[in-house]
Design a protein around this nucleic acid. Structure first.
Lengths: 220, 220
DNA sequence: TATGCAGGGTGGTCAGACCACTCTGCTGAA
DNA sequence: TTCAGCAGAGTGGTCTGACCACCCTGCATA
């Protein structure tokens, strides 16, 4: 009938038709969709098929169902988002290097943002980190350091993406900063950040990451 | 029974049980799952319910179904990823500003990468852009300019994320670079990039974005 | 006027049936 | 003996019709 998968994947077609219907009828986020029975009749398929499509959409957060009330379009325009993300995820074919590179893009951006913003530089969290470093608290991990920096930027989207990439890249990130050398580098990084030296802070970051990378290779 | 949604969302429970079953029985990626009928019997639910769960998982790319053969566990370690993604997507709570900021993070990173890499700076695409700018070709849009820069970095993941964010941010990006002022800025940006002046290139970029932002506000 | 109940609509679930497809193993012909 | 071809079992895909649990509304009753 249409693309490669053709006969199979009817529920994907139904999802597509639902999306069309939503845009045609200008259904806004929070509005109610037609009932399952009406949809089945309108699309000329069984209620079973409609439900399979709806459940999938629900799992993706596109819709929300309330028994006795109906099915509602979730707010936000997540549709394309989900679509792109899922194709990206499903295709995989992603070289691990891209994931690492992209993760570092977000990390560098956070360092830059903090370093260039005086208010952010004065946050108590940095002092806390340095004292924890000095005292050699093993609870202070690489992940903590980077995460707090991104948190400080207050860009929660970047934080989410970073978190996701971190899991993906499979790097042993949840490791305490203990080795003297590493402690020194991170200390320097923090110093430069708090001093507002963007270039130097970034250089420290690169040094740090190089070291982490070297360590990873050794353990292979 | 369990969390807030309780009675509703049975299919979510089923998904959970399936995941348990998969890990218990050590089903590897590519292996076949028990048939829908067997699962229904094992989990003591109807085949309908099992199917709704399976279709959801299929849409997420966790499994793959082949008529006449069975249901197979997809490869890749998508599970956590999808989990993170869905919570991220479902929660929304995303301010549009975060989206714009994050998009710019990727754009700045691409400019930086190109500017710092001599090989990338020598790509013919930049010359082409400048001549197109000079000749005032309206086919040359803001989107083209930025996209090509990210393409040049060869980080396809970053490109995907950028593309996604661009769609989201709702900025009129598919606009030709025509105004004299804008042409001049982009020209300068390209010049600085090709000269390898990272700082100046980034300053140009900020100038450009400020102008685009100002323009957007005017048309509101 | 205010309370409470009944009915209709909605999603949630189920059993059972049939179809289309794939694989396997048996049967019969070469 | 070998191999082509067919039949059957098993699988996902779809549909029907039914019942349940729940929510809302409006009407009847106190």
């Amino acid at each position: 009938m249409q693309n490669s998968q053709s006969s199979s994947k009817r529920f994907l077609d139904i999802i597509g038709e639902l999306q069309s219907l939503i845009s045609e009828q200008k259904i806004e986020y929070g509005d109610r969709l037609p009932s399952e029975r009406h949809l089945a009749e309108k699309l000329q398929v069984s209620r079973t098929a409609v439900r399979e499509a709806l459940r999938s959409m629900e799992l993706l957060g596109l819709i929300e169902t309330r028994r006795g009330e109906g099915t509602f379009l979730s707010d936000f325009k997540k549709h394309q988002l989900v679509e792109v993300l899922s194709t990206f995820i499903m295709q995989q074919a992603r070289s691990i290097q891209d994931v690492v590179d992209t993760r570092m893009i977000h990390e560098r951006a956070a360092i830059t943002t903090v370093t260039e913003n005086e208010e952010l530089r004065m946050l108590p969290v940095w002092e806390g980190m340095q004292s924890r470093l000095r005292e050699g608290e093993s609870v202070f991990s690489r992940e903590d350091m980077v995460r707090e920096t991104i948190v400080a930027t207050e860009n929660r989207l970047s934080l989410k993406i970073w978190f996701l990439l971190k899991q993906y890249s499979g790097v042993s990130f949840d490791i305490a900063i203990e080795a003297d050398e590493e402690v020194a580098i991170v200390h320097e990084l923090l110093d430069e950040m708090m001093a507002g030296n963007k270039e130097k802070a970034l250089i420290c970051y690169e040094k740090w990451m190089d070291q982490v990378e070297g360590e990873r290779r050794e353990t292979e």
